[in-house]
Design a binder for these strands. Structure first.
Lengths: 148, 148
DNA sequence: CAATAAACGCAAATCAATTGCATTTATTGA
DNA sequence: TCAATAAATGCAATTGATTTGCGTTTATTG
């Protein structure tokens, strides 16, 4: 269910467009995010690379990517930080992270729910909401079917 | 806006009812949760106590309280762990944590939203949700008024 | 009240993430 | 293109939250 053809993407260009320098590692890192459809933790990133990389460099690259609107944090239920590609509406100037995430506890696949609206509830009265963090953990369709 | 009169509560009884031993510290800890209306972090708990207590003992007591359905974790936007009293529907056997939290970024007050329903969104189709983590961060009514 | 179990305090370990600094790599503009 | 400048990298060390081990103290149970 890939939404893109890797051959058609200029990863260096993506970095440049987001004001990030094109180091060999960062090109491979952004390619990894486009290749893996689910969100990635630092350890998963290192495991997926074919060369040794310092964990610190991964953290710094991820922070730079996040700062410049390329990826965003997707915390899981255990308070561990994962990262996922931003939607198209994210830009250098403005992160739109006010959407919910579906996190499959089996395969770690992350789905962004873009049409999520905060439900109006009685107890919300008067509260001004600046920021959302919504994680719905469960089983994605693929993982449900693999159990049958 | 206290929902109880501290004098009428037997905190030792609450511990016993949840299968927790009645040490002097734990009685004071549970009383603190009933006294403070907002959620508490480990550091806030220690600050609020009038006697020295080892941080490890706080962690262990909180873990025991959580395990036995007395309190539950309320993570904030910065992935720091806070604890809040469980609602009445929580019990030793079953934690019902599938509710959202409003977290005031000014005063740290936490409100549990019990009538929160997962909105039906297109992208949820087929996903079986086992667990929710929903934090809405913003300004509570009191803090909005204090800015006026 | 004695025997047993649990909680406590202290030291040390763990784990994720960050920081400092020297070195390497990328960007830039003449 | 190449030197000057800025940024990224690797390594060591640090931070901060949380956990673990263990000997001692406190609570529970009969």
């Amino acid at each position: 269910m890939k939404l893109f053809d890797k051959k058609n993407i200029d990863f260096g260009m993506i970095l440049t467009q987001h004001g990030l320098s094109k180091t060999s590692f960062r090109k491979i890192l952004i390619e990894l995010f486009y290749t893996k459809k689910y969100s990635l933790s630092v350890d998963e990133i290192i495991t997926n690379l074919s060369f040794p990389i310092d964990k610190v460099s991964v953290y710094r690259a991820l922070n730079a990517f996040e700062k410049n609107g390329l990826i965003h944090k997707v915390p899981d239920m255990a308070n561990l930080i994962r990262y996922a590609l931003c939607q198209s509406e994210c830009s250098f100037e403005k992160h739109l992270h006010n959407h919910a995430h579906l996190l499959c506890s089996n395969c770690n696949e992350t789905y962004c729910i873009n049409d999520f609206k905060i439900p109006v509830v009685n107890e919300c009265k008067g509260f001004i909401i600046d920021n959302l963090k919504i994680i719905l953990e469960g089983s994605c369709v693929d993982c449900q079917q693999s159990y049958k």
